[in-house]
Design a protein around this nucleic acid. Structure first.
Lengths: 195, 195
DNA sequence: GGCCTCGTGTTAGTGAGTAACATTTCTGCT
DNA sequence: AGCAGAAATGTTACTCACTAACACGAGGCC
């Protein structure tokens, strides 16, 4: 690997860790980008070369390629919602056991800070396109509206599960909530509670 | 009505019109808040008292109460997705005929400017809570996860329809696309096209 | 008409994000 | 190894969204 990309990644990681440390210690809005950069030992320009905005330090993740691949691995005979449901459970299982608390902390942060919450829709959108790509054969250029609608609906349901998880302060278990959210998509009647 | 609130609304409208005019003439990012305020004949502080951010001039709408009411009017025996589907069609029909071009212009703007697109998720979220309120009886305090998931999925599907509409530059008809998106939610299989 | 509240304008400030240029650091080639 | 070119980083200065504080003026209330 290149030396340049190595130091670049080290910078990226140092910035992200410094940022999260400062956010937890003194709050998101009370922390300035210059402060993060100083803590990470770089200039504030390097910060913006690694993360386009201050919010992206928290927002960016790299789950999308995994989700796409997991959806593609599910049997194509299943309905699309079911494929995405299973893929989500598998992917979640991979990070949930060892990173449950980190995932909860990050989700809490994303949902509690207005500047971050106003942008979680972007993460939903990128998860949605990952689902679309997983549903459509690789050579397809543009997914159909039907595929896009289902993918968007599934990521929205997933997001509802995460929000419910954070609402209960992480007392429930996220995979169960995800199950309930996806099941509600298939058989939904108003006022229907699980027994 | 109060004289004060009257001038306040006049200010609001003047700012919004001036802003949209300037955005169309010279682009969103090339237009500064001070410029909008000057064009509307107010100070830039008045701007921020009417709209919390520059983006909100384009983002804010008042469809949510109507959507909530329309969902509540649909027969409660129908599945939740169907109630929201019908409510959306009715509400859309009300504004679509006379404001089709304005709706298209606004949607184009929202989806083409990065600063705006990154925040459309907020509109989806508020539409989602409107759906939730329409689905749950008025005395209910917190909607169930199932209701939240369905509401979020429906607003996501609606958004997919709007995106597809804008993608074709408004050549299709939005209500048809909304139909396709909602139908895809119920019977979905990958690669399935409507016949 | 006089108090009094509330919206507005003015000013000055913070902080995110960008542009331009100097400087350092790595890479490729001989 | 050493040098030329390229690319990342730092420095400086700037724009602009947004806020805090206070002064002012226009309604509302008696």
């Amino acid at each position: 690997m290149d030396q340049r990309t190595r130091t670049r990644r080290r910078n990226r990681a140092a910035i992200q860790e410094a940022a999260l440390r400062l956010f937890q210690r003194q709050g998101y809005e009370a922390t300035t980008v210059a402060q993060i950069a100083r803590e990470a030992g770089v200039s504030h320009m390097t910060f913006f070369r690694c993360f386009p905005t201050k919010e992206d330090v928290v927002l960016q993740d790299e789950y999308d390629p995994m989700l796409e691949e997991l959806v593609r691995e599910q049997p194509a005979t299943l309905p699309a919602v079911e494929r995405i449901h299973r893929a989500t459970l598998v992917g979640l299982g991979r990070v949930y056991e060892h990173n449950r608390e980190a995932l909860l902390d990050r989700s809490r942060l994303l949902l509690s800070i207005p500047a971050l919450r106003s942008r979680v829709g972007e993460n939903l959108a990128s998860a949605s396109t990952a689902f679309e790509r997983g549903l459509t054969p690789p050579e397809t250029t543009h997914p159909t509206l039907e595929v896009r609608a289902v993918a968007a609906a599934c990521s929205a349901a997933l997001s509802a599960a995460v929000i419910a998880w954070v609402d209960t302060d992480g007392e429930g278990e996220l995979p169960e909530l995800v199950d309930r959210a996806f099941l509600a998509l298939r058989a939904s009647s108003p006022g229907h509670h699980r027994s």
